[in-house]
Every structure is written in structure tokens, then in C-alpha cells.
Design a protein around this nucleic acid. Structure first.
Lengths: 101, 101
DNA sequence: TCTACCTGTTAGAAATAACTTACAGGTGTC
DNA sequence: GACACCTGTAAGTTATTTCTAACAGGTAGA
């Protein structure tokens, strides 16, 4: 695990909106507009946060066709476990300085 | 654990400089100027990062008097283990919404 | 006194993240 | 056609974080 990777994983989680997104999706898979309604935030903003979460691998989205023919983008959580401690950080930094030299 | 607390813990780690600071201090306790020299960064900037780390409880600093009478501010890591997963996030969000109502 | 260290703070610039507004396009129903 | 849903993006603003430059003050030795 490289430093950039670990930081990306941590940074993607470090946001109150994204916490609430994960908490909601943990209960049930929801499509974007419904999620925006429940969280009381704009769809455009939600998209940004979903992109960050998806880029880090915490959630995944897929288009689904509803009964009445509408295309809905559903998102669901990808179970994860992020563990960071002194040793893992030291190892990441060491791995980085090794590869650069 | 409240949402703000967990986010503060995660955000405090999510920075390459702070990773390197922790990695260095994991090997040995160092004073600010020496640390700045090894990392190749300005003291003012280092101070900012150390404050964030100390505020989150990852490092701790104390003044120490050297043999020749100079006051040196040494920092050392406080062993930690940060674990985050879907359940812990859901719990934090739930605890938050409980207390607000 | 001058030099070489050290701690500590502040004001402002620069870079990044977060957020808003405003689009364009689609399907189905009244 | 008008309305009520939906996805998706781009431009521009605001807020936050990060970083620089500059300062004030201290001790010890040549």
C-alpha cells in the first residue's frame, strides 16, 4: 500500500456528507435522486461526493431500469475495513522512499 | 464516537507530510527544528502539521532542556489504531441524529 | 557584539475541496 | 403539449486547507 493510496482512502472518508451517504446506503440501496432527497442536498453536490466514494472503492453504482421505464442509478456500499496505525504508516512511507530511489 | 470526532481523526491523517512526520517519529523522538531539517520543510509549516496531529492525539510534544541550556521541543508518537468500517460509520451517524432530536 | 542555534506567532498568498446555479437530454402520464 | 419524474455535466463562486515570508524573543559561545 503506497502513501497516496492510503491517503486517498482516508480523505475519501473524512467528510460528514460522505459519512451520511454511507450510513444511508448501509441500510438500503438507493438511486441518486432518492438519496439526494433523503439527505436534503442538491443532486449535483451528491454526484461529487458519490464520485469520490466510488473512486476510493467504498460504493458502487449501476443503472437499473424501473418498471415504468425510467433509468435509475442505484448505489450500494462495498463492505470495507480501513485500519491505520503507526506501523502501517511507517511501512507505506518506507515503501515510497524505496521505489523513488 | 461522534461523527465530527471520527472525521477529525481521519482528516488529521490524510496528508502526505503528516504521514512522513509520523513515520519519522516512529523511529525516534525528535525536536521541531531537527524534524524540519530531515523533512526539508519550513518550521512554520511543520508547526501547523504538528498542531493538527497533536490536536487529534497522534503525537505529543514537550519542552526539554538540552545540556547547553537550549529549550528544545521534542515530539513523539502516541501509539494508535484507527479502524473504520461501514458499521462504525453507521453507528456514528446514528448517535449524532439521536442526540440532535 | 556578532553568530548560530532554538521556540513561537501572524498575515497573506496559493492550492484544493466543497458547493451553487444553470444547463441539456431522456421516459412516461394527463 | 405540459408536467413530473430521472441522469449527467460544466462554469463559476465560496470555503477550507496548505504553504510562504516575516517577525519577535530566548540561550550560548567566539
Amino acid at each position: 500500500m503506497t502513501v497516496d493510496d492510503e491517503i486517498a482512502r482516508l480523505a475519501a472518508l473524512a467528510n460528514p456528507h460522505r459519512f451520511r451517504i454511507i450510513a444511508l446506503l448501509a441500510e438500503e440501496s438507493l438511486h441518486v435522486s432518492e438519496l439526494a432527497r433523503r439527505l436534503g442536498m442538491s443532486r449535483a453536490l451528491l454526484y461529487m461526493h458519490l464520485q469520490r466514494l466510488e473512486a476510493a472503492g467504498y460504493v458502487t453504482g449501476h443503472l437499473e431500469l424501473s418498471d415504468d421505464g425510467k433509468a435509475l442509478k442505484f448505489f450500494e456500499v462495498v463492505p470495507f475495513e480501513v485500519t491505520t496505525n503507526v506501523a502501517s504508516i511507517a511501512a507505506a512511507v518506507a515503501a515510497d522512499t524505496e521505489s523513488t530511489h
